[in-house]
Design a protein around this nucleic acid. Sequence first.
DNA 1: ACCTGAACACCGTTCAAGT
DNA 2: ACCTGAACACCGTTCAAGT
Lengths: 223, 223
Amino acid sequence: MVKKDISDTQIIKTAFKILSINGTAESLSIRKIAAELDISVSTFYWHFANKQALLQAMADDVMAEVLIEPSTEAWDVQIKAIFMAIYQTYLKYPYAAELMILTVPATKIRLRLINQLIQILLDAGFAPDKSSLVIESIDHFITGLFADIANEVRLKNCALTSQDNYMRELVGQMQSIAQENHYDAFLSTFDQHQHVQLASEPKFMLGLDIFLAGLKQQLPHHN
Amino acid sequence: MVKKDISDTQIIKTAFKILSINGTAESLSIRKIAAELDISVSTFYWHFANKQALLQAMADDVMAEVLIEPSTEAWDVQIKAIFMAIYQTYLKYPYAAELMILTVPATKIRLRLINQLIQILLDAGFAPDKSSLVIESIDHFITGLFADIANEVRLKNCALTSQDNYMRELVGQMQSIAQENHYDAFLSTFDQHQHVQLASEPKFMLGLDIFLAGLKQQLPHHN
DNA sequence: ACCTGAACACCGTTCAAGT
DNA sequence: ACCTGAACACCGTTCAAGT
């Protein structure tokens, strides 16, 4: 009927709001956004081509927050700093990793970041193909890590729906199966795995450090 | 009405069939399985508690195919061999990685595998907490890699629906944005990235080797 | 023990129609 | 240029009822 002056930004903002409430990206729906903004579902489609387009815009917004200062440090220090900045942003927005998995880096902001990372490795003397493979590898690692964390957070937080109760039972099952079969190596790490959940920073740092150490070692042989 | 003698195994088999046709896990629905088997949707729920339970069973079936022989080799050779076996299985079933992301390793088969990996690191002299973190890291890496590959395969294969056309456009956008902004480092790796797609084995091996090299280096300082 | 139909509460997307 | 209602073609899950 009347113009409601809904902007793209408003839709994105509402989407983030919904996402931050129940954590996981699958809980975000166009219909919920429409209800929250008190607009018709079809109005959404005037502002965005489809749901994917919205996710792209959201992913871009998240990555825009990653701050990177130019640096003259060694290549591995630079790489580490950038991924730590990405890590910090992912920590702030628990759904960020999921958003990256669901989207494609087809925006200026995200491509600049990738370009920057590859450039650092090129400057360090790595071959082009190797450089991009390495960046992809770290990206896979960090995305996988956060997908895992997001999953675990989902398991802990919501014991509400029957679905999530089922998932909680599964975690209980893990322990009892491990005990029955004497999977002692697994059990020795299980308890702590249950408690140090949110201290994921050492987890991330460790993996990143190991990878960079291995990479450093490879350099003299390949340029 | 009449008994149709539908077994759990039959449902799983049909689910795999549907999954292998259109690749991605989101295309799998209980309603499609029911239609294919010519049973009522509600019949499914007599055989499985819910969709998650089906996915758990499927994930377990996939991992059951990972063959691991006992070995007396060095720890890093053993670890590599196991992850290569996992890699081979994931290659065979393109939806396997997605299945692992969506499920929890709450079964005898999957827990045994994790236990085995941790045990190898414990025997090598790593501390329990570090051992499990390392295994998780590699797991994140491999899962992330395959999620990425699955995504790319999806982009290439299906140019059918409007959704996928939109995604294809995005890939085109990546290139033009990179060109406009002179993201040369990115561009230098883009072309080859487009062609050597399915040769992901070197990609995987490289990442794994780098990680293991870094890990090896850390050992003397930490036990 | 095994299967069904009908219903409930959701989705994303399209499109002719309104102002 | 911006918004709507109604429809289409999907989902997962439940439950009383059938054999």
